[in-house]
Design a protein around this nucleic acid. Sequence first.
DNA 1: TTTGCGATTCGG
DNA 2: CGAATCGCAAAG
Length: 192
Amino acid sequence: MSIRTKLSRDFFARPTVEVAPDLLGITLVRKMPDGSEVRAPIVEVEAYTEDDPACHAYRGLTERCRVMFGPPGFSYVYFIYGMYFCLNVVTEGEGTPGAILIRALGAPGCDGPGKLCRQWEIDRSLNAVDLLDPNSAIYLEAGTKYSARQISITERIGLSVATERLWRFFVTDHPHVSGKRNKTRSKSVAKR
DNA sequence: TTTGCGATTCGG
DNA sequence: CGAATCGCAAAG
């Protein structure tokens, strides 16, 4: 029997590293600009906290990361590498910054933080929206919780600092987890 | 105001 | 492995 994750403001008002694995299995819903709607479960995330050198809020409040200091359960969308957007969920109580980067969804073409935002047309216009409000253009919905034994934990990806923190969580063996380039490579493997 | 680089992705 | 591509924030 599977456990249904109950969403509430308090669910996100917890330590970021505790919320992160609990986010796996929760459904992300996006009302597309053309009126259609897409939904998929979160299958890979990374945690970022106040005392974390890799966190945008590490050096205090700036215009970019201001939403991280606000109430939990809101979106934090930022622009990176001159061409991609990344979607986060704000955590911790109001006044304490914290966020969880959504790195992959259980949907085609959503295996990577930049790719899923491109696929679902998520940009800065969706920054600071309430993800607990079904009226938002993007929001979260209760989903099936994964047990601890189905979750893998590793170092975060793409960082130059704080690489030792094991704050990346993903559904073990899930086909849509990021970093799976060359999925079907059986040709050059034999070389040795 | 300038400058170096980034929570990425894709092609060669 | 490196280019693409530009906003952000630290440095000057």
